[in-house]
């Protein structure tokens, strides 16, 4: 009863805080971009541009108005889903994000699934003999994958599989000789549908060939987190009373591990998935650029290179909001399904 109420209170606070966090992020990005040393006009036009041109651009960007008015306008725009338009080609920022986000989401979700499979396999492999060779190898695997610089791992994969062995393309998302599939922007899905409709599977093949290296690299980097989490949780569960009880009933060790310990050890892995999303994005940013994957990170790097303030601002706000939303949803999900956590 009291746990139920505490849980409800926790859920309510978490949900109520999410918009507050989003507002904080939006305000921080705004403040940082306005208060940072250096005039964006200088950055865009150079210090020797004619005064008239500078003033015109300042008015166009709304930078000549008082700060709080700019802030109000900015928040209002955000609420109505308008992120302004890019300085370099006048494209609406929202459109740029909508075009590039599917590529990143596709790469990220495939990598996350692969990472979970690989990591859980590594984490599980050491269980037969705790503190044995495999178990320790698993521990070193965790530290090793964490210490790998993402872009360096990606370059090593490129050298090995693309340049020396020639099995896979060096970068990009789709073969230049084919027309990319139309539809949702998720090439894997689009080309699969296209293949089912027309019986032509080149598009799906091309998509997969380009996806393997980036997704595999990202999965390798993230799998250590899963491996560590499962290993620790399995050790903890295998030491617990109910597993001892199962053993003393004479159940085989395999059955104890698979039916009794594993399901409980897997639950915290969901929490880990939530935490991983933030590092997934950091890693994905670098992986995308190494493999010239046309996702949101590549657009962010372009925008940074061109000092395109509205585009940088828009992309950062959107990515951060996604991270906050995912983190909060995972917290809620874990709170709902894991009865062991108390909320006092």
């Amino acid at each position: 009863m009291s746990r139920h109420r505490a849980l409800l209170r926790y859920l309510a606070t978490r949900v109520a805080l999410a918009p507050l966090m989003l507002w904080l992020i939006a305000s921080l990005v705004f403040l940082l971009l306005r208060l940072a040393p250096g005039d964006p006009i200088d950055a865009l036009l150079g210090t020797r541009a004619p005064a008239a041109a500078r003033e015109a651009l300042r008015a166009q960007l709304g930078l000549n108005r008082p700060l709080f008015e700019q802030y109000g306008h900015y928040l209002w725009q955000l609420l109505s889903g308008d992120l302004g338009s890019s300085l370099t080609n006048q494209e609406p920022v929202m459109g740029v994000i909508r075009d590039s986000l599917p590529a990143s989401l596709e790469l990220g979700s495939v990598a996350l699934i692969l990472a979970a499979l690989l990591g859980l396999a590594v984490g599980f492999s050491g269980i037969a003999r705790p503190e044995g060779r495999l178990d320790l190898a698993g521990r070193l695997y965790g530290i090793g994958t964490y210490a790998l610089p993402p872009f360096w791992a990606a370059m090593a994969m490129q050298l090995l599989f693309a340049v020396w062995l020639g099995w896979l393309p060096v970068g990009g998302r789709f073969p230049a000789t084919l027309l990319p599939p139309q539809g949702s922007g998720f090439y894997l899905l689009d080309s699969l549908l296209e293949g089912l409709r027309s019986g032509q599977w080149q598009q799906l093949g091309g998509t997969l060939r380009h996806l393997i290296l980036p997704a595999g690299t990202l999965a390798l980097l993230l799998s250590g987190i899963f491996a560590n989490a499962l290993r620790l949780n399995l050790h903890r569960t295998l030491d617990s009373d109910y597993v001892e009880a199962a053993r003393s009933r004479g159940l085989s060790e395999t059955r104890v591990v698979l039916r009794h310990a594993l399901p409980n050890a897997l639950l915290p892995v969901l929490t880990i998935t939530g935490i991983t999303v933030a590092s997934l994005i950091g890693g994905a940013l670098l992986i995308e650029i190494t493999y010239s994957w046309p996702g949101i990170a590549s657009r962010l790097q372009e925008a940074i290179g061109q000092r395109d303030y509205p585009l940088v601002q828009g992309i950062v706000v959107v990515i951060s909001s996604l991270v906050v939303l995912v983190t909060v949803s995972v917290d809620l999900l874990v709170a709902l399904i894991d009865p062991r956590i108390s909320y006092d």
Partner: peptide, 12 residues
């Protein structure tokens, strides 16, 4: 809030 954000994004 700062802690939730991806480390690399923040410093970028």
């Amino acid at each position: 809030t700062l802690y939730t954000l991806p480390v690399l994004l923040l410093s970028v």
